[in-house]
Design a protein around this nucleic acid. Structure first.
Lengths: 341, 341
DNA sequence: ATAAAAAATGCAACCGATTGCAAAAAATAT
DNA sequence: ATATTTTTTGCAATCGGTTGCATTTTTTAT
C-alpha cells in the first residue's frame, strides 16, 4: 500500500487544458479569472480530490499561516480558556496554533522562542515565564518585524502590544473589600515582581491600605511562587506571628486555597478569624470551604482578543500604533471573606 | 525597515566555494562529508546567521515535522499534563505540535481533522470527543497511511495504536474498595458508552459487584456528561431514593466533587452516610472535604508515550504491528471513602 | 608509479504554488 | 473592417533545500 501521488494544480490544468497559473488563480477568487472558468477549475479540483499544498505556497509567499504561542503552563483553568479562545479565532482566520510551555523557566522560554522562530511562525502570542528578566531572546523576532503580542504577563516594549486586565484596580478592589469587612492586618501573597501582574497587584494592595489609613507593613507581604506548598509555608508563618493577621489576599487561587486548608487544620476559622481572597476564579475556588472570594477575568476573551489583534496585524489591516488593551474584570465575593452579614 | 533577505545554503556555498548540495549535507551530519568541511560549513552558517528553511525542506521531503493533536478539552489537569508530556518528547525529536480542541463535539472534531489534514501534519494523536460514533472522518487520514494514535479515549481500529490504562481493572479496584468499606448499594456515575473509558469502568464496576455477590441494580447507574451540574442532578436523584445508596463511584473527579458538595448541603455525612470515589486524581480531589478517593493515572507519561510511539513510527523505526499499550494506574484512598478506621 | 577501491563533492532535476509581465482573446470604439 | 481597450490566460522564473547519480579527489592496494 504505497502513498499515492498527490493531485496538484498541474493535474487540474492538464485535465482542463489550462495553465497552472490560471488554475492557481482560479482556486482563490482572483479577479482576472472568468467566473465559468473558475467554476470548472473548482469542480475539477473537487473531482480529482485536490488538496492545497501549503508548503509550496509557504515557500513562495514566505508565510506559514501559523501562530506561535508561549505560555508558562497549560494546566490552569485560566490558561486553557485563553487557549480555547485563541484557537477559535485562529481557526476561523485560517491560522494554526503551535503552543508551547515555558514551564515558568526563562531557559525553556528562550528555547521555545528559537524553535518557533525556526518554524517561521508568522507571529507570536506570549505570556511570560516566572523569571524572565528581559526581552533579549525576542530580539531575533523583533528584528525581523515579526509581530509579537503579550497577554496577561506582559512586558512593556515599543514594538509590542500588551493585553491585560487592570491588575492594580482589581487588587485595589479586593483589598478594599477586605477592609470593608473589618480587616486591619491584611497579608498579601505576591510573586516575582518582574511580572507586571504581581507588581500591579501589590501596588493596588498598597494604594487601598493607604486610602483607608492602614499602615503598610512589609512583614505582611510574602513573595513566593504561589504554589500549594507556598501556601502552606505562608500559613505557618502567619500562625507564628505575634499579632495575627485578619485577612489574606493571595495573588492566585491555588495558593489561597492552600492557605485556607492549612489554617483550618490549625484550628482557625475562615472568615471569622481570618478572611481570605484569591485571584483568577479557578474552579477550585468554588470547591474549597468556605468558597473563595476572588477576581474573575475573561480568559476566553483575552485569548480571542490576542489572536484577532495579531491576525489583523498579519493581514496588514492595522495595529501599528496600538499599545495596550485592557479587559474588564469582576470581583466575586464569596464566603471566605464575608465577616459581616 | 524592510525585511532583510534570508541567508540560504546558496550563500554559504558561495562563500566557501562549495556546492549547495554539499552545504545541505554538511548541515545535517551526512556521512559523506569530511569533518573539516562540515566544520567550515557549520561555522560559516553561524557566521552568516543562516536559518534553516523548513518549507523548502518540507516541500521537497513531503514532510512537515508536525504532529496534530486533537483533544476534547484542554482545561483539565489530566489533559494539560498529557500535552506537557507530548510537547517535551516532540520538541526533543524535532517535531512541533498543533493542538486543537473538539470541545467534546463530533462536528468540531471532524473540522479539526480536516484542518490538520490540510496542514499536512505527519501524524495524529487523538482522544475522542464525547459523542463520536465512528471513525469515518479519519478515513482520509488512514487512506493516506498517516499514522494515527489514540490515547485515553480510544477506538479499536486495525490501523491505529491505542494507549490506555486498564479502566476495567481500575474500576474493579475502586468498587471493591468501596465494598470493603461496607458499601452495599453503590451508585455508579457513567457517561457516553461509546467511549471505552466509560464502558470499561462500568464493566469493572459490574464485575466487582458480581464477585462480591452484590446484585447489579441498573437504577443505581447514571449516565450523563460528568459535569458539575450532572453531579448536582445525580445527588438530587439519590436523595429521593427510597433505599438510599451508601456509596458513589463517579467516572471523574469533577462530578464526584459536585456530588459531595450537594450531599453535604442536604445534610448527609461523607463518608459515614455515603462513601464517594472519583477518577483522575484532579487537584480538586485534594481540596474537597473530605478529600476524595480516586484513581491516579500518569498523564505526563501517557503524553510522552503517545508522542514517542508516533515519532518512532514516523521515523520508520517500528510500530506496524503494535496495537495497544496499557499504562499503570493507582488507587488513591482518601477520607471520602473510609468508613472504617 | 599505476590500478583499484573508497570517500568526498558537484550537477541538475526535482517538490508545487505564486506572480510579474507578455500574449492572446474578447469587447468596444472608430 | 480596423484600431483600441479591456479581459483572460499563459510563460517562465522563483522560492530554497533535497537527492540520485556522476564526477572528482583521496586513500589503499598492487
Amino acid at each position: 500500500m504505497t502513498t499515492q501521488k498527490e493531485v496538484t494544480i498541474y493535474d487540474i490544468a492538464e485535465a482542463l487544458d489550462l495553465s497552472p497559473a490560471t488554475v492557481s488563480r482560479g482556486l482563490k477568487d482572483h479577479p482576472a479569472i472568468r467566473k465559468d472558468t473558475r467554476k470548472r477549475i473548482v469542480e475539477k479540483a473537487r473531482e480529482l480530490g485536490y488538496q492545497h499544498n501549503s508548503f509550496a505556497s509557504n515557500l513562495r509567499r514566505n508565510k506559514t499561516n501559523t501562530i506561535g504561542v508561549i505560555v508558562p503552563r497549560l494546566n490552569s483553568y485560566f490558561m486553557s480558556t485563553v487557549i480555547a479562545g485563541m484557537e477559535k479565532v485562529a481557526n476561523a482566520g485560517g491560522y494554526n496554533l503551535i503552543i508551547s510551555q515555558s514551564m515558568e523557566s526563562v531557559d525553556k522560554e528562550v528555547a521555545n522562542v528559537k524553535t518557533l522562530f525556526n518554524s517561521r511562525v508568522d507571529g507570536f502570542l506570549v505570556s511570560l515565564a516566572y523569571d524572565t528578566e528581559d526581552l533579549s531572546h525576542f530580539d531575533m523576532v523583533l528584528d525581523k518585524n515579526i509581530p509579537l503580542i503579550f497577554f496577561d504577563r506582559v512586558f512593556e516594549h515599543p514594538k509590542c502590544i500588551s493585553i491585560v486586565i487592570d491588575n492594580f484596580k482589581a487588587a485595589y478592589e479586593v483589598t478594599t473589600h477586605l477592609i470593608s469587612q473589618g480587616c486591619k492586618r491584611i497579608v498579601h501573597i505576591s510573586a516575582n515582581l518582574k511580572r507586571n501582574v504581581y507588581t500591579d497587584r501589590l501596588r493596588g494592595y498598597k494604594a487601598a491600605l493607604l486610602d483607608h489609613n492602614i499602615p503598610y507593613d512589609e512583614k505582611l507581604v510574602f513573595f513566593n511562587n504561589l504554589s500549594d506548598q507556598a501556601g502552606i509555608e505562608v500559613s505557618e508563618a502567619i500562625l507564628k506571628m505575634e499579632q495575627r493577621p485578619d485577612g489574606i489576599f493571595s495573588s492566585n487561587d491555588a495558593c489561597a486555597v492552600s492557605c485556607i486548608r492549612q489554617l483550618k487544620l490549625a484550628g482557625l476559622k475562615v472568615p471569622t478569624d481570618i478572611a481570605v481572597a484569591g485571584f483568577n476564579n479557578d474552579p477550585l475556588s468554588k470547591v474549597i470551604e468556605p468558597n473563595l472570594t476572588t477576581v474573575n477575568y475573561p480568559g476566553q476573551e483575552m485569548g480571542e482578543l490576542a489572536a484577532s489583534t495579531l491576525i489583523r496585524r498579519l493581514d496588514r489591516l492595522e495595529g501599528a500604533n496600538l499599545n495596550t488593551m485592557v479587559l474588564r474584570h469582576d470581583l466575586i465575593v464569596r464566603e471566605s471573606s464575608l465577616k459581616k452579614g
